[in-house]
């Protein structure tokens, strides 16, 4: 029997400071139709994330972790329950408000990088900084992920790991409050995976960006404040790490 999320323990603020939660997720249910079949992707998930939190979401395929991430990112809306971001219910947002929520507050990193092939590394980042409110420069963002040498390369001229680091630079250049990563190392080998995770880790530590990372790879859990395991649309387990390991020390 899986524990009910209502009984999940409250989370402390890892940085120790008293801060209002960035996300308050309250009894969120998501049902969608896949063809003619009703799929219960989330069944009453509750969760709070504070500024600077680094959370890893673990779970099998179909456990609901991607759905949860999509809802937090404003790509999807809950069927029931509320998702408060900085006190505002994003479930109530209009399509346009959702777009601007994503534009201003959220940074995304995807498994397949999703870079625009016709733009160089610098331009892929500039794509975001041009429309953001208070961005860093594309060069700074790329420096943060260690790509100063590859500014004017097109995606087709970059390795997978480099492409993913460009994607991270693109996600953090706007200085988002939240960084959401869906299997960021899923398509990478170990070595490049570590480089990518280091970039994510640095963003979280240096900029205090609230970070959620979806992964199949339980090893990554060790670099998080908290590890949330989802199963069948519910939170099955929450584990808090006393000590976060740097990515280079992760045991693969």
């Amino acid at each position: 029997m899986l524990p009910d999320t209502d009984n999940a323990p409250g989370f402390h603020n890892p940085s120790g400071a008293v801060a209002a939660p960035v996300f308050e997720i309250d009894s969120v249910t998501k049902v969608y139709l896949q063809g003619e079949v009703e799929v219960h992707a989330l069944r009453g998930v509750s969760l709070e994330l504070s500024k600077g939190d680094f959370v890893v979401l673990l779970g099998q395929s179909g456990s609901g972790k991607s759905t949860l991430l999509n809802i937090m990112g404003g790509l999807d809306t809950p069927t029931e329950g509320r998702v408060l971001y900085a006190g505002r219910d994003i479930g109530e947002f209009s399509e346009r408000e959702l777009t601007f929520y994503r534009r201003e507050n959220v940074g995304f990193v995807f498994q397949f990088y999703n870079l625009i092939p016709s733009l160089t590394a610098r331009e892929n980042v500039a794509l975001v900084t041009e429309v953001a409110l208070d961005p860093m420069t594309p060069e700074d963002a790329l420096a943060l992920v260690g790509l100063t040498e590859r500014l004017d390369h097109f995606p087709s001229q970059l390795s997978g790991g480099e492409q993913q680091r460009v994607a991270i630079a693109r996600a953090i250049a706007k200085q988002p409050d939240v960084l959401l990563c869906d299997e960021p190392t899923g398509a990478l080998d170990v070595e490049t995976g570590v480089a990518v995770l280091e970039a994510i880790d640095r963003v979280n530590r240096d900029l205090g960006t609230t970070t959620a990372v979806i992964t199949h790879n339980a090893v990554i859990s060790d670099m998080a404040h908290r590890v949330i395991t989802l199963s069948d649309g519910r939170i099955a387990r929450v584990q808090e790490n006393e000590k976060r390991l740097p990515p280079s020390d992760l045991k693969w």
Binding site: L115, I116, P117, S118, L119, T120, E123, N124, A126, L127, E130, D152, F154, P155, S156, Q163
Partner: peptide
């Protein structure tokens, strides 16, 4: 693999530098 793109010679011009990324996408396409 990602489609191959190259910079064109005229991209060195000041005019090009003033274009938005989305315009560049259109032109490169």
């Amino acid at each position: 693999p990602p489609a191959k793109y190259r910079s064109a010679a005229f991209e060195k011009t000041a005019w090009y530098a003033s274009l938005t990324q989305t315009t560049r996408m259109v032109l490169r396409e």
